[in-house]
Amino acid sequence: MALKDYIRQRFFPHIWCPGCGHGIILNGLLRAVDTMGLDKKNIVMVSGIGCSARISGYVDFHSLHTLHGRALAFATGVKLSKPELNVIVPMGDGDALAIGGNHFIHAARRNIEMTAIVMNNRVYGMTGGQFSPLSGYGTMATTVPYGNIDHDFDVVDLATSAGATFVARTSTYHVHELAELITKAINHKGFSVLEVLTQCPTYFGRRNRIGDASEMMEVYKKNTVRIGSKKKQENPDLLERGIFVQKELPEYCREYDNIISKARQK
């Protein structure tokens, strides 16, 4: 199918700024869905609030644009009530890990089959550039005009500790890897988390003097390496990309089917 057939043209133009990385993630997602040959009517996109969240409206799947931070909670209701659906949950960094942090760790702990894509641009874009829990110490944002004294989460570490059974990271520079990892995440039988480093040239790039969109993507190219790369040993500051966790554990909806059998035998 042509990629445009996965898009709701009626919904366009999109709201993203020129140079925003979110469109690249949308592209990667559609390529993954196309490669997998998923039926559009079996996909539900559930999103929260923020620039990232608008992605759910642009795609021709069932789409549920919810409340700030609550996407995974809504998605849990969708998935458990109809487990045959593929549930994909794109989230922003503040959306997923500040206001939605509790839902994030508990969805991971339950190991309910769905794919959480954390579109990490390290800033609240829609409200005009405030710091997020992923901005990091020393960064600049409108609500930290003298420099950020908040430390950041590592999404991969957090998701791993919380019990996610698939955890991966990539960036908008690595487009082929992006589509490949989204495919693997969706195929995973359990709770999967994919962190995608994505540029916000309008707020994060400008205020932190990183440069425009292409310069920000250059940073992803320079500052990240594949897991297990020798470069990481030489320079521990490099950020690793790839699959960090991939394991089989009982999945929540299948476990609940066993509960139903037990209850009925009573």
């Binding site: 559930v46 549920l64 919810t66 409340l67 609550r70 995974l72 909670a73 809504f74 998605a75 849990t76 209701g77 969708v78 998935k79 458990l80 009530s81 109809k82 659906l85 509790n102 839902h103 508990h106 609940y256 509960i259 139903i260 037990k262 209850a263 009925r264 009573k266």
Partner: peptide, 30 residues
């Protein structure tokens, strides 16, 4: 579960309310 229905204890009341909305959209009484 005796009737084939689903019960879930969520992490708080916020998510409980969100979950019943999600489940209603798949066609269930919640």
């Amino acid at each position: 579960p005796e009737t084939g229905g689903k019960f879930i204890q969520m992490e708080d009341e916020i998510s409980s309310m969100c979950a019943i909305i999600g489940a209603s959209l798949t066609g269930h009484k919640t």
